[in-house]
């Protein structure tokens, strides 16, 4: 790990001021479960590390007039234990419990989850965000890509690592971001971007911006669920996930949000499947049909065709799970 300066600011404003104007100058430290590994492997070599865990502005889970606010440094474990979240947002709890090690749930934060780097093994071995060899060849499509994207975009073959992204998008959540010139709010789907350079990032934050909180609209009357296909029960990454949020009108679906995780470089919104469900009563057959439609346009790589099938099943099962859940 390269030597660095450690900063422990007392206020959000101070923290923002300590960040650099370009990547590589400073890194934000939340739970550290990702950042420290990146630093140990010399993938990130920041000159300064800015700890945000102590910032009051970033803590706590609170009710708001329109829903719920989760501070960026709230841990997975706090989320999973929160009665406010458990009662209304099973899709979030299911996603969080999928991060299957208690150690990571104790340390990892919701902000860190959304901003974590991708887990492509070429990236993690030093071949850059997009996993390119010295000669510029993209390694994932010609190499081992069993865990990679079936909806690749451009040269981005990795999958978005965040388990929270899909349910938050399905629920219509926003994130609040603080920067040198104040704060802004964007929908969660706009946080995730497809990097175009081998040094690019997976989120739309500027190097001197901090994600401060997540704002989720009320989900009263919205049936929601996340289903995750995982190889192991113990600590493991999902192979494919689906998060769904269904606004019901009696026994029919008024409108649906379906978001796929771990299949593309950003969470993938399955608009065709969403449209299919609108105005219909949800049956197992319709759920299976939605799963099929959800993978239209998938472009699997040499070794991950199976993820297409897993995605179909994840959508079907998330929908069936949502119908079981309390609205």
């Amino acid at each position: 790990m390269q030597a660095f300066e450690y900063a422990n600011p007392a206020t959000l404003q101070e923290a923002v001021a300590m960040l650099g104007s370009s990547w590589g100058e400073a890194d934000i430290l939340a739970g550290g479960t990702d950042l420290i590994s990146l630093m140990k492997d010399y993938i990130h070599t920041p000159k300064r590390v800015v700890n945000i865990k102590g910032l009051k502005e970033l803590q706590g889970i609170t009710k708001t007039a329109t829903g719920l606010r989760i501070g960026a440094v709230v841990t997975f474990d706090e989320v999973a234990e929160s009665p406010l979240i458990r009662s209304e947002y099973p899709s979030i709890v299911q996603a969080v419990l999928g991060v299957a090690s208690p150690q990571i749930r104790n340390m990892g934060t919701v902000g860190g989850d959304l901003c974590q780097r991708n887990r492509c093994w070429y990236f993690r071995q030093g071949f850059g965000t997009l996993g390119k060899d010295k000669d510029g060849t993209s390694l994932p499509p010609i190499g081992e890509n069993r865990y990679h994207a079936i909806f690749p975009k451009g040269d981005a073959y990795f999958v978005s690592a965040s388990s929270l992204g899909p349910p938050l998008i399905a629920l219509g959540a926003k994130v609040k971001i603080a920067g040198p010139s104040g704060s802004r709010e964007i929908p969660v789907e706009e946080l995730f971007v497809v990097p175009t350079s081998n040094k690019g990032r997976e989120v739309s934050l500027a190097p001197n911006e901090i994600l401060t909180e997540i704002l989720i609209p009320s989900a009263r009357g919205v049936r929601n669920a996340t289903y995750e296909v995982r190889h192991k029960q113990a600590l493991d990454w999902p192979l494919a996930t689906a998060s769904v949020a269904l606004r019901m009108k009696g026994s029919t679906v008024a409108s649906a949000k379906i978001v796929l995780g771990h299949v593309g470089p950003t969470p993938v919104i399955a608009t065709e499947a969403e449209a299919l469900l609108a105005g219909k009563a949800l049956t197992p057959d319709l759920a299976a049909e939605a799963g099929k439609v959800a993978v239209n346009g998938a472009k699997p790589l040499s070794g991950n065709e199976y993820k297409v099938q897993l995605t179909r099943v994840a959508v079907k099962r998330a929908l069936m799970e949502a119908m079981k859940a309390r609205a």
Binding site: W121, Q125, D133, I142, G143, E144, A234
Partner: peptide
């Protein structure tokens, strides 16, 4: 990895081992 000649999973993350569950 055929091209780079590397072990792609020299870690406890993708070198998968069973847990109690």
């Amino acid at each position: 990895d055929a091209k780079t000649g590397r072990v792609l999973n020299p870690d406890m993350e993708f070198y998968k081992l069973a847990g109690i569950g």
